[in-house]
Design a protein around this nucleic acid. Structure first.
Length: 874
RNA sequence: GGAGGCUUAGCUCAGUUGGUCAGAGCACUUGCCUUACAAGCAAGGGGUCAUCGGUUCAAGUCCGGUAGCCUCCACCA
């Protein structure tokens, strides 16, 4: 047999992964014999370096996928990467500046795209290699990229379809603008952060007569674009002013006072300056009142020519200047400190400006409706369920989606404008010339929001819009696994896209997991510098240990903290499994018969019963995506029951010198170990495959073997109970030994009084081995044992141990008194419970009977213990 | 302003449908290099399950109030 090193060393991981790849075990094919199980990998950005969030996401998916594959599904896990339009473009711009000293304008669109594709080749490939190190069992032959041929075709198809249905339109709207990235952003791409600022109070004088209206603002610089002041129509104090004209300070503009419900009466001064070009609410109000829209801030965040003498100033510099000038000219009333939320670009952190601009939008209301219905009707289910609320809340209040970006890296919008007649044509392939006048066409300069292509991911990766076998067999997919932070960006958009384009939802379940936090509960981030590098952890502990540490103790939807201690204890667990396996493998002899024994002994029946329960629990929990529970159950069974008890119990057979016994023990050990390896394989795939190869038949591959099934024929409840009481007895004897300071090396004789003498006689060998006894003698009564004894009372037996000079009467008395106190408390509690007529009448009979039995046992034990104590004398 | 979550041993957290659920890992105490494993073995200590009230024969477990912490959404100048 193969040999194994004494200490687990994960350096074989790479070899195992290559072995799987060579065997093409990850690949899935349309297979009408089998039921499909499909998972679409959330594509990592090509900007990235693998982080702990990826590691968790990948681990959860791989556990599910490996479990399903072993359970007999044709399992496709489709991997890929995302071009991440804005995120990547920001990085490339930075790199270009640093390395070449060039800007986008310097290299032009083509030159820029060349660099972008080079970036993709370099970093897209790197993240794939990093994913592989985690052991991800995805079908790399189907690897996709959001800008590859398939996905791009899907994007064009979707865009044109939406457009033809009137679901996409182009128009002047107020949008979020990042002055640094110089592009529009969707609402979801703006993050709000509270900032300490001021509320400035200014007086706008009436044109006619004396007096003024005081307005309050957080953004004095935008006053240069004010075109009205608004008050609430119900505000009696303000009513007389409605319709009057004001002279806008610092400008020569005359603006009206209008009445609108938008203005809240109790807030500020009750009058609001209105800047339609630079505030979403003001823009809406402006539309209602037909106000002029005057832009004063340009695309770079600089004041434009409409700002008069302030033109050319950065918006913050302009604020300072405006504030000074207004004060100098006597318009300032007061300044109050004020905390408010400021929107920032989710990619570069720059303060976002609201500006009016011509952009492309997706009309969301008609798309949201079927998407809401899909979840309401349970065609799509969120796990855990509470995230449906988040989803509904967003979908029901959704606004149109701004999808054009003033970027170069991405899917260019398939709209063409005629230089001659100005006609716009939207088409999948660029027309030769203007269909209307034959004039020259120019394609729209903008690209699409990166999430537009991500939204099509579940079917674009399967070849849509081409009709093909993969698409019809694997779509809709089974479960989508992702963290809660991209429900809006991605999950919601995939659902409405799937509904609209494919006519059915893209997946039936959405498994939401939490995010990985640092040991203090803080979000891991580059800027905070508290991130840990999964690759470094893999180097130090192995991918299996990392995976197990991420899988254990997690619950759907809940965040998890990562600590070094956790991965260490998981590595120790892997090492434990390694050594237990090593023990089994090193005991296999050439002529051992490894077939499952025809005759099982008590210990076999016990471990098989326990194993069946584990198979059942783990299978149920994995089907429910309760990965943390499944992992904990396996950890416990492997370490405690298999290693600490069953292996120990197998030693007398292995070392007894009897060939038949040896063979029997090895056959059972390999049987149980094989089941454990299969059950653990989804969690720790490398080490289980490696161990399996040490003793499995040639050509047998664990990752494609069958998942263990619950087998009623190997469930033995009677033996299970008997061995549980044997364990209890062993622990009680060990406890006694420890408290009496009997050294582990000291073997002692034991006399046993029991009403199940045959069983005790049968397990005497186990008692000797496990409790450090030199002999076990079944006796008829305690009178047969002479001299001072230490005694142990369990459900199985009364064990009397003559310790001779080791006996310490005081300690023995103390022990017995402690045991008596605990048992008496049990008797008391159970007596009260059973004395409660309502409990006996209403609780299930089985429970009542069980409690009665317990009471009887406890009473019996208590009596025996008291006898012992009395026999000790004072 | 709206929604959701969390509060269980010193620390990090499990506890799925109410009845051996009061647990695990780490830490701690004691004793062990027992021929698979010191990344180990054996034994042990430690929690009125945030708080108040309700439902129930029975509540970390269901319902409501309170306190503290956290997250998301909205963005009233």
């Amino acid at each position: 047999m193969d040999t194994m090193d004494k200490t687990y060393d994960p350096s074989f991981e790479k070899r195992i992964y290559d072995f799987w790849m060579k065997g093409k075990y990850f690949e899935a094919h349309p297979n009408s014999e089998k039921e499909p199980f499909t998972v679409m990998m959330p594509p990592p950005n090509i900007t990235g370096q693998l982080h702990m969030g990826h590691a968790l996401n990948q681990t959860v998916q791989d556990i599910i996928v490996r479990f399903k594959r072993m359970s007999g599904f044709e399992t496709l896990w489709l991997p890929g990467t995302d071009h991440a339009s804005i995120a990547t473009e920001v990085k490339i711009v930075e790199q270009m500046k640093k390395e070449e000293g060039l800007t986008k304008a310097d290299v032009g669109r083509e030159g820029f795209l060349e660099r972008a594709w080079a970036w993709k080749d370099k970093f897209g490939g790197r993240i794939v290699e990093q994913l592989k190190r985690l052991g991800t069992s995805c079908d790399w032959s189907k690897e996709a990229f959001t800008m590859d041929k398939n996905c791009s075709a899907a994007v064009l198809d979707a865009f044109v379809r939406y457009y033809k249905k009137g679901l996409i339109y182009r128009g002047d709207r107020i949008i979020n603008w990042c002055p640094h990235c110089r592009t529009a952003l969707s609402d979801a791409e703006v993050e709000y952060r509270e900032q300490q600022s001021n509320l400035w109070y200014y007086r706008y004088p009436f044109v006619e007569g004396d007096g003024y209206i005081t307005i309050a603002t957080t953004r004095p610089e935008t006053m240069l674009g004010d075109t009205a002041v608004a008050v609430n129509p119900k505000d009696e104090k303000m009513a007389p002013y409605v319709g009057r004209m004001l002279r806008l300070p610092l400008t020569d503009r005359i603006i009206p006072v209008v009445a609108d419900d938008y203005v809240e009466m109790g807030f500020g001064t009750g009058a609001v300056k209105i800047t339609p070009a630079h505030d979403p609410n003001d823009f809406e109000l402006g539309l209602r009142h037909n106000l002029e829209v005057i832009r004063v801030i340009d695309d770079g965040g600089i004041m434009n020519e409409n700002a008069g003498k302030y033109a050319g100033l950065d918006r913050l510099a302009c604020r300072k200047a405006v504030v000074e000038d207004l004060e100098k000219q006597g318009y300032l009333e007061k300044i109050e400190p004020y905390a408010h939320n400021v929107g920032e670009c989710y990619r570069c952190g720059e303060t976002v400006e609201a500006i009016v601009s011509k952009q492309w939008f997706v009309r969301m209301k008609p798309l949201a409706e079927p998407a809401i219905k899909a979840v309401r009707s349970k065609k799509v289910e969120f796990i855990p369920k509470r995230f449906e609320k988040t989803y509904f809340n967003w979908m029901e209040n959704i606004k149109d989606w701004c999808i054009s970006r003033q970027l170069w890296w991405g899917h260019r919008i398939p709209a063409y404008y005629c230089d001659d007649c100005g006609e716009m044509t939207v088409a999948k392939t660029a027309p030769e010339c203007c269909p209307k006048c034959g004039g020259h066409l120019r394609q729209d300069e903008d690209v699409l929001d990166t999430w537009f292509s991500s939204a099509l991911w579940p079917f674009s990766t399967l070849g849509y819009p081409r009709k093909n076998k993969n698409l019809s067999y694997f779509y809709p997919t089974s479960v989508l696994v992702t963290a809660y932070d991209i429900i809006f960006f991605w999950v919601a958009r995939m659902i409405f896209s799937g509904m609209e384009i494919m006519g059915e939802p893209p997946f039936s379940e959405v498994l939401i997991h939490g995010i990985v936090r640092d040991p203090h509960g803080k979000k891991m981030s580059k800027s905070a510098g508290n991130g840990v590098d999964p690759l470094e952890l893999i180097d130090r502990y192995g991918a299996d240990a990392l995976r197990f540490s991420l899988a254990t103790g997690i619950a759907p939807g809940s965040d998890t903290r990562f600590t070094e201690g956790k991965i260490e204890s998981c590595r120790n667990f892997v090492n434990k499994l390694w050594n237990a396996s090593r023990f089994v493998v090193m005991n296999i002899e050439k002529d051992d018969d490894l077939t499952f024994p025809a005759k099982l002994n008590g210990a076999d029946k016990w471990i098989l019963t326990r194993l069946n329960d584990v198979v059942k629990d783990v299978t149920i929990n994995l089907n429910k995506y309760e990965i943390g529970l499944a992992a904990a159950r396996l950890y416990d069974f492997t370490w405690t029951e298999f290693c600490d008890w069953y292996i120990e119990m197998s030693k007398p057979l292995l070392y007894g010198g009897n060939k038949k016994d040896h063979s029997h023990a090895v056959a059972m050990l390999t049987y149980v170990l094989t089941a454990i390896l299969k059950l653990l394989h989804p969690f720790i795939p490398f080490v289980t495959e490696e161990i399996y190869s040490k003793f499995a038949p040639k050509g047998s591959v664990l990752m494609v073997s069958d998942w263990p099934a619950y087998n009623k024929k190997t469930v033995f409840r009677k033996e299970e109970r008997q061995f549980e009481s044997l364990r209890e007895t062993v622990v009680a004897i060990r406890n006694m030994r420890a408290e009496m300071n009997v050294p582990p090396s000291k073997k002692v004789d034991a006399f046993v009084v029991t009403d199940n003498a045959p069983f005790v006689a049968g397990v005497a060998g186990y008692l000797e081995k496990l409790a450090g006894l030199s002999s076990v003698t079944v006796v008829g009564g305690k009178d047969e044992v002479q001299g001072a004894v230490a005694s142990v009372v369990t459900a199985l037996a009364e064990v009397l141990v003559p310790l001779g000079e080791l006996i310490d009467t005081d300690k023995e008395r103390e022990r017995l008194q402690k045991d008596i106190a605990a048992t008496a408390a049990d008797v008391d509690r159970l007596g009260k419970l059973l004395g409660n007529a309502a409990f006996v009448a209403k609780a299930p009979q089985k429970l009542v009977d069980g409690e009665r039995e317990k009471l009887a046992r406890a009473e019996e034990k208590l009596a025996k213990l008291k006898e012992k104590l009395a026999a000790l004398g004072d």
